[in-house]
Measured scan of single mutants.
Amino acid sequence: KSSGQLMAEWGLDDVDYLFSEEDYHTLTNYKAFSQFLRPLIAKKNPKIPMSKMMTVLGAKWREFSANNP
């Protein structure tokens, strides 16, 4: 499932962030990516359980990696 599908299924607000060329150069591993995106997700979904946060971050990382030029 996509991150958007997961968040909709769980009734969470998705984070629409348009990644720049620079993001693809600086966010080169999962740790850097999650440190960048986790606060954005948490801000829109302050009560998100950690298990769902990790699942969403994993899905967003897969999508980000697939779109990386």
Rank of each mutant, 00 (worst) to 15 (best):
Q35V: 10
H25S: 13
L6H: 04
Q35H: 06
Y17Q: 02
S34P: 14
K31M: 09
T26G: 10
D23E: 11
Y24L: 08
H25M: 15
Q35I: 09
T28H: 11
D16L: 03
P69S: 10
A8R: 15
L6Y: 07
S2Q: 07
M7F: 06
K47T: 11
S2G: 06
L12Y: 15
D16W: 00
Y30V: 05
G11I: 00
P39C: 04
S3T: 09
L12T: 03
Q5Y: 04
F64I: 02
E9M: 14
H25I: 13
M7P: 01
T28F: 07
D13R: 14
T28E: 07
M7R: 01
I41V: 06
L18N: 15
D23M: 04
K1R: 03
Q35Y: 10
K1A: 01
N45T: 01
Y24S: 05
Y17I: 10
L57T: 03
F19M: 05
F33L: 01
L57I: 14
A42H: 10
W10M: 12
Q5G: 05
G11A: 06
A32Q: 13
V15A: 08
E22T: 11
S20E: 09
A8E: 14
D16F: 03
S3N: 08
E22A: 12
R38V: 01
Y24V: 08
M50R: 11
D23C: 03
Q5C: 08
M50A: 15
E21Y: 06
D13E: 15
Q35C: 12
K52R: 13
G11K: 10
F19N: 01
L12I: 15
Y30P: 07
F33A: 00
M7S: 00
G4F: 14
A42R: 07
K47G: 15
L40F: 12
E9V: 07
E63R: 01
D16T: 06
N45L: 04
L6A: 04
S20F: 03
D13T: 15
Q5H: 12
A32V: 10
L6V: 07
F19H: 05
S2H: 14
Q5M: 11
K31V: 09
F36K: 14
Y30A: 04
D16G: 06
F64S: 01
V15Y: 04
D23Y: 00
L12D: 02
A32S: 13
G4D: 13
K47V: 05
A8Q: 13
V15E: 07
K47S: 08
L6F: 06
H25W: 11
L6M: 13
T28S: 12
